Amino acid sequence: MQIGEVAARTELSLRSLRHWEEVGLLRPSGRTEGGFRLYTEADVERILVIRRMKPLGFTLEQMSAAMRDIEVLRDLDGDLDGHDDRASAARSRLEALVGDAVERRSTLERQLAMADEFIDQLHQQLA
């Protein structure tokens, strides 16, 4: 599928998708003869992982590292002979990322609670 369809399916802008490609976070699986980007369902799944990391405030570098580790585990799935160190290191980094994501989510929950309190206070003032 082309970039416009991917943008619509992922609710991301064309600009974001192109930027992620420019910084090496994402790359389309192919191109048409005319040079248009082509994406697969697996590409869309990767994009959705990145999109889910974005609101948690992860940097492009952190997202890129996470995607590399996810790919290592996917590529080695069922074929761990001689790759235990790579898989173990990737798994360890992703486990740390989970902990970081949980902390970031908690921070967002506290911020939302404060926002709700503020909105309630405004409603009380207007009543």
Rank of each mutant, 00 (worst) to 15 (best):
V72Y: 00
L26W: 13
G30I: 06
S29I: 08
A65M: 10
L108R: 12
L112Q: 15
V98A: 02
R68L: 11
L112W: 14
A96F: 06
G99M: 04
G30H: 03
E11M: 06
E117I: 12
P28Y: 03
M114L: 15
P28T: 08
Q62L: 02
L17A: 02
Y39V: 04
D77N: 07
I50R: 06
L80I: 14
F118M: 15
L56N: 05
T10Y: 09
F58A: 04
R74Q: 11
G24N: 09
E45M: 07
R86V: 02
Q125M: 15
H123F: 10
G82S: 01
H83D: 13
A90E: 02
T40N: 05
H19C: 08
L17G: 03
F36E: 01
V102P: 04
E5M: 07
D100A: 05
F118V: 15
Q111S: 11
E22P: 00
R15V: 01
G82R: 05
G99R: 05
A65G: 01
L94T: 04
D84A: 14
E61F: 09
L14T: 06
L56R: 01
G34S: 12
F36W: 06
L56D: 04
R93C: 01
E71V: 00
E117L: 14
R86Y: 11
S64E: 02
A7F: 01
P55S: 01
